[in-house]
């Protein structure tokens, strides 16, 4: 058997079976060079078992908790912002809907004609769509859409910031 560094390491780690270990130890004990190598390896192993543990700075825990709290606060602010924007959009849409209802109910209906209700609704819808894409209402709709787009962009940017904060 040739005693290699691998075998010496296996002796240290107790990875050899009884028979091989006895055989290896016989060879090592009869060689000054191998005894020296095994002793040196044992000393290295002994030293490594006492490898010093290094310490982080004393306020390490506080730094981490500060970051966690900061991210949580950021998330709360973002949530509030999102709710506010959502409420404004809902209110605006509600306003448009109310405006739509009022304007349809105020449209004159000729009593002499019995118009099918479906035809009337389609008629009104077409008229309203024409109104929407012209004049003042178009401006309102554009504003709402712009607000939605800006909010989405802001929301995405804030999400990125929170993700960054979470990752330190």
């Amino acid at each position: 058997m040739i005693i290699t560094d691998e075998i010496l390491n296996k002796i240290i780690d107790n990875e050899l079976d009884q028979e091989t270990r006895i055989e290896a130890m016989d060879i090592i004990n009869n060689s000054e060079e191998l005894t020296k190598r095994l002793s040196a390896l044992k000393l290295a192993d002994k030293h490594l078992k006492d490898i010093p543990e290094l310490n982080v700075s004393y306020n390490f825990n506080n730094i981490i908790f500060d970051k966690i709290n900061k991210a949580a606060q950021y998330a709360k602010t973002q949530k509030r912002f999102f709710i506010a924007v959502f409420s404004i959009i809902v209110l605006l849409l509600l306003g448009v809907f109310v405006f739509f209802i009022i304007s349809t109910s105020s449209m004159p209906v000729k009593p002499s004609f019995k118009i099918d209700i479906n035809t009337r609704i389609i008629d009104i819808m077409v008229k309203k769509l024409e109104e929407v894409f012209s004049g003042k209402v178009l401006t309102i709709f554009s504003s709402i859409i712009s607000l939605i787009i800006i909010s989405v962009i802001y929301f995405l940017e804030e999400s990125k910031k929170i993700k960054k904060l979470k990752n330190g």
């Binding site: 390491n9 020296k36 002793s39 040196a40 390896l41």
Partner: peptide
């Protein structure tokens, strides 16, 4: 890694601390 340390120990003849 162990062998690296072992070689240094042998080189500096320090294994006698253990023998």
């Amino acid at each position: 890694s162990r062998n690296a340390l072992k070689e240094i120990i042998i080189k500096n003849n320090l294994q006698e601390e253990l023998i």
